[in-house]
């Protein structure tokens, strides 16, 4: 079985690698790139702990092959803060106590980033349906909803981007 060369842009940096086609995107992110903020929870596309942004849309990276991300732009939780300045979603989760153990949090934040990019002013119901593919076993979700509302308000007030690095695109390889 032959390997494939892939080139992806992750959090604004371009990476090339020779990978086995069966390598999952989440393993590529965690093991090849040592970006361990993206978690593996259920490993069956149920829980959403592995959620990252692929060309600006939330995806479950346990159910994508790394080769499917070739030429694409990925943002992980490590790409959300600007230096020491938290992203409004990170700040919201902190201020509203949107986490306890924190395992689901990176996936929740990446999913919420897609939600707010496409619906900057969601109702509570839209937020709850919007995160319906992300499981939290600690909070009971109420504070997660509040955290996303906090971020939505801050993003609207400050005019900041819900998703960083959206202008970058990866060089495609033949």
């Amino acid at each position: 079985m032959s390997t494939k060369k892939i080139t992806v842009t992750i959090n604004g940096e371009t990476h090339s690698a020779e990978v086995e086609p069966r390598l999952l995107l989440v393993h590529f992110i965690r093991e090849n790139l040592s970006l361990t903020g993206t978690h593996i929870g259920c490993d069956t596309s149920n829980c959403g702990a592995c959620t990252v942004l692929l060309d600006g849309r939330s995806v479950k990276s346990c159910t994508l092959l790394a080769v499917q991300a070739n030429g694409k732009n990925i943002v992980t939780i490590e790409g959300m803060a600007k230096g020491t300045e938290l992203h409004p979603l990170q700040e919201g989760f902190k201020e509203e106590h949107g986490l306890q153990c924190g395992f689901c949090t990176p996936g929740m934040i990446m999913r919420a980033a897609d939600l707010l990019a496409h619906n900057p002013n969601p109702t509570e119901d839209e937020i709850r349906w919007g995160i319906s593919g992300n499981l939290c076993r600690c909070t009971g979700y109420n504070n997660i909803v509040k955290a996303i509302q906090y971020a939505a308000e801050k993003i609207r007030d400050t005019g900041s981007d819900s998703i960083p690095f959206t202008t970058h695109t990866a060089e495609t390889t033949a």
């Binding site: 596309s45 959403g48 959620t51 692929l54 849309r57 939330s58 995806v59 479950k60 159910t63 994508l64 999913r111 897609d114 939600l115 349906w129 919007g130 319906s132 593919g133 992300n134």
Partner: peptide, 9 residues
């Protein structure tokens, strides 16, 4: 169908 992130793919 499934959930929002699955529907993105």
């Amino acid at each position: 169908i499934a959930d929002p992130s699955v529907r993105n793919r």
